[in-house]
């Protein structure tokens, strides 16, 4: 049976992990490759790296990161951060990444999804959607897609955008609730369910994980295929193994 996936996310700037980590037996907690390998040993199913280096230097840092990860990491990994076009995809995939996450470029020029999916296969095209609730109380909920790391509203309905991106060949969605992100109050169940009901490709839920029940809820109640989390793992609140045991106890298939 296909398992649900637990995916730690690492923010990387200039080749260094931004948030601190409490791993034992790790020499350099700022080294993304060493951290990633530790997560692999712990049982993480995949990893996502978001490169938040200033945009003019980022192209090189992303390729370098993919290349170094490929040496030490033997689970699938996704890299996102400022990837614009097929040339960027080619370089980063060739360096060893399995998937590329795109957000701003895809909303600016949606046909980049078609071209990359045709060229490299849908399985490596992850469309990241940063969504923010735009409706008031009592109204039917609606979310807007944001770009530039959540700074710029696009006027696009997030769910409609997901449907279009899937038709164009997106192989997976990395769906972040801007409202839930950083709160540790749980994933946005309504948003996640709206997207999983609308598209036929896997959805990774992101933003808001504060405890292990949150992981169960978004998988069970919103049909998420995978859960992404940063703080609860980086700060050592829970180990990957604890998270998996918790999911397994709730009857969710996981790789142990």
């Amino acid at each position: 049976m296909l398992s649900k996936r637990i995916i730690p996310c690492l923010d990387v700037r200039n080749g260094r992990v931004v948030k601190g980590v409490r791993f034992v037996n790790i020499r350099d907690a700022g080294d993304p490759v060493e951290m990633a390998a530790a997560y692999d040993r712990e049982g993480a199913d995949e990893l996502v790296f978001l490169d938040i280096t200033a945009s003019h230097e980022r192209r090189e840092t992303v390729v370098d990161l993919a290349s170094r990860c490929a040496e030490e990491l033997f689970i699938p990994f996704t890299i996102g951060g400022g990837m614009r076009d097929e040339a960027d995809f080619r370089k980063v995939l060739k360096a060893g990444a399995d998937k590329i996450a795109i957000n701003t470029a895809a909303l600016d020029h949606p046909d980049v999804i078609d071209r990359c999916a045709q060229r490299f296969g849908s399985q490596c095209v992850v469309v990241a959607i940063d969504a923010k609730l735009v409706t008031g109380e009592g109204e039917e909920k609606r979310w807007e897609a944001y770009v530039h790391g959540g700074r710029t509203p696009t006027g696009r309905d997030a769910v409609e955008w997901a449907v279009e991106a899937a038709e164009r060949g997106a192989g997976e969605f990395l769906l972040t609730s801007m409202d839930a992100d950083g709160t540790q109050d749980g994933y946005d169940i309504d948003l996640t369910r709206a997207v999983t009901a609308a598209v036929d490709v896997p959805v990774i839920a992101s933003g808001g994980a504060g405890n292990l029940d949150h992981l169960v809820e978004v998988i069970r109640d919103a049909d998420a295929d995978a859960v992404l989390a940063a703080s609860i793992f980086h700060y050592g609140t829970y180990s990957i193994r604890e998270a998996k045991e918790h999911l397994a106890a709730a009857g969710i298939p996981v790789r142990m």
Binding site: M1, S3, D200, P202
Partner: peptide, 11 residues
């Protein structure tokens, strides 16, 4: 009848 491609961890 499930989603194709089959992507992910399976036994």
């Amino acid at each position: 009848k499930l989603k194709v491609p089959h992507i992910g961890w399976n036994q």
